[in-house]
């Protein structure tokens, strides 16, 4: 019961803090693409892959007092910070979740900017296409972000690194 919620809490436990809703969305999507057992359904939205289900689960966890959400004004907009509360840690201790290498994977992702994770997750969303088609998608659907060729290359290398480090749950 509430296992899917517990997995999200494990991500927050591994990362200590995640700054930004967009970042949280993209971290879970990328982890899912690396075969970690997250089952939130994603669709393509403004900022790339987005899951309404994930938004809902996070809200529920906040309501239950297991996750702390802090809203901060930053420049012209608000930013949200997420961390696990004490009762969240206590609740999580009831679960034995087998997610090898999750901590390292999440730390690696959390160290990146939200903009970069948006690019990485968009590339992964179109991973059934060949590289040239993916680039065309990025430059068409994300034209407002003005990603450069270098950033796309960097994102591909980052994905390769994640896979080489065997963060992929199936490989490990």
């Amino acid at each position: 019961m509430l296992t899917e919620h517990a997995k999200l809490m494990k991500v927050l436990s591994a990362s200590k803090e995640i700054i930004g809703r967009k970042k949280l969305q993209k971290i879970i999507f990328i982890a899912k693409k690396l075969n970690y057992p997250f089952y939130e359904k994603y669709e393509f939205h403004f900022y790339g892959p987005y899951s309404e289900e994930l938004t809902l689960r996070i809200e529920e966890l906040c309501n239950m007092g297991f996750i702390n959400e802090v809203k901060e004004k930053k420049g012209g907009y608000y930013q949200y910070k997420y961390s696990l509360t004490k009762s969240g840690q206590e609740f999580l201790s009831h679960y034995d979740l087998d997610m090898p290498e999750l901590q390292n994977c999440i730390n690696e992702l959390n160290a990146q900017s939200a903009r970069f994770l948006e690019l990485v997750s968009t590339i992964l969303y179109f991973d059934h296409l060949d590289k040239e088609e993916v680039k065309e998608k990025v430059f068409t659907l994300k034209k407002k972000q003005r990603y450069t060729d270098e950033e796309v290359e960097e994102a591909y290398q980052f994905i390769q690194r994640l896979q080489d480090h065997k963060f992929s749950a199936k490989i490990s």
């Binding site: 930004g20 809703r21 967009k22 939205h45 403004f46 900022y47 987005y50 420049g75 012209g76 907009y77 608000y78 930013q79 949200y80």
Partner: peptide
Amino acid sequence: YRPGEEEE
């Protein structure tokens, strides 16, 4: 959608 608020 509120610019910068990360809504979708």
